[in-house]
């Protein structure tokens, strides 16, 4: 499938700030499932900083915007050709060993309820177990936009019984850890046709390490594994670590944010 992305993030500060630094994970991952045809990231008034491939295999690009500035826009435009690999992250190079992804972070910390949920399923092999965990998370947390916020933890979302893709991914990571399976948070884009179940074009899911197969993606929000409708940008232990854009402003301006994402299929 050929997917076209147009992703604009606008930052507005009510008082001009003295400067902004950002760290981007905005380049599609390099693996068999996707090939970039065209990709362009621009930052209004920005100076491009250093770039490097991190231990998880993602390209990280630094930017800085000298102040005073009260408006910044980050625009991502490009075309990616994707393939359905049933969620398997094939031929993706990374240095960090799977076991390192067993470390908990604040939003993925396991409480009693998450431990119970993680133990509520059984399966004959790791792959089946991972599918079952993903299903259990989808059953336990109903998809409802607006029910949670950016800092909701997996435990809180489970107690609430509602959440969005970020909460699903955090809960699945926690449940996988309960079963001693390394897991991580993935951010990316999703192309969804109208007849689909709820969706967000800026999307997130989880990957679970399955010995023999490697990293396999699971999307509880859509009860499936990532296929040709998904574009993978990067991974981290949780939403904050995997965020496509991380930034800090110097100054006292209050930040407001406006994001638009369009993912469309390009006719062959």
């Amino acid at each position: 499938m050929k997917l076209k992305v147009d992703h604009v993030t606008r930052y507005h500060y009510d008082h001009p700030v003295r400067g902004v630094v950002q760290s981007h994970r905005l380049i599609p991952s390099r693996f068999t499932g996707q090939r970039v045809q065209k990709w362009d990231v621009t930052v209004s008034g920005g100076i491009k900083g250093g770039g490097f491939r991190d231990g998880g295999g993602d390209w990280v690009q630094a930017w800085s915007v000298p102040g005073p500035v009260s408006e910044i826009s980050v625009r991502v435009q490009g075309i990616v050709e994707t393939k359905d690999l049933a969620g398997v992250l094939q031929r993706h190079r990374e240095v960090i060993p799977p076991v390192a992804w067993l470390r908990p972070t604040a939003p993925t910390r396991v409480d009693a309820a998450l431990a119970d949920l993680g133990h509520s399923v059984s399966a004959d092999d790791t792959l089946a177990l991972a599918h079952a965990l993903s299903g259990a998370v989808a059953d336990a947390i109903a998809y409802r936009p607006g029910a949670t916020h950016a800092h909701t933890t997996a435990a809180e979302a489970l107690a609430l019984g509602e959440g969005v893709c970020q909460d699903h991914a955090h809960a699945l990571i926690a449940c996988a850890r309960v079963r001693d399976l390394p897991a991580r948070y993935v951010s990316g884009y999703l192309f969804a046709s109208e007849d689909d179940t709820p969706h967000e074009a800026a999307h997130a899911w989880a990957e679970i390490w399955v010995e023999g197969l490697g990293w396999v993606g699971f999307d509880p929000s859509n009860r499936c594994c990532p296929d040709e409708r998904y574009i993978r940008l990067g991974a981290g232990a949780d939403a904050r670590e995997a965020a496509p854009i991380r930034g800090i402003a110097r100054g006292n301006g209050l930040e407001s944010l406006d994001v638009t994402v369009a993912v469309d299929a390009v006719q062959q």
Binding site: V21, G49, G50, F52, D54, A62, S64, I248, R250
Partner: peptide
């Protein structure tokens, strides 16, 4: 802020 990206890119 941003020190680690400068460090990691040499």
């Amino acid at each position: 802020p941003g020190l680690m990206d400068v460090y990691r890119s040499g």
